[in-house]
């Protein structure tokens, strides 16, 4: 799974730590999400989409494989 979190963070000028604080996770989790190494729960995906004022599918791009 690919994510646009890094790109959206740069757009909104938010650090990984700020985002982590806003969605209530560890900074490490944001790092894993940005690298596409972790599939977030629906709750976390929703919280992130709220922070960036975007739809979930605009932030998380799922591979069909």
């Amino acid at each position: 799974m690919k994510t646009r979190i890094k790109e959206l963070r740069a757009r909104d000028n938010i650090t990984q730590l700020d985002l982590a604080k806003k969605v209530g996770v560890r900074r490490e989790t944001i790092v894993f999400l940005e690298k596409g190494k972790y599939n977030p729960s629906l709750r976390l995906a929703y919280d992130i989409s709220v922070v960036f004022k975007s739809k979930i599918e605009e932030i998380f791009i799922f591979d069909s494989e």
Binding site: L17, R26, T29
Partner: peptide, 10 residues
Amino acid sequence: AGLTIEDELS
């Protein structure tokens, strides 16, 4: 510091 210690991934 008000950070989350444990989350869904940990």
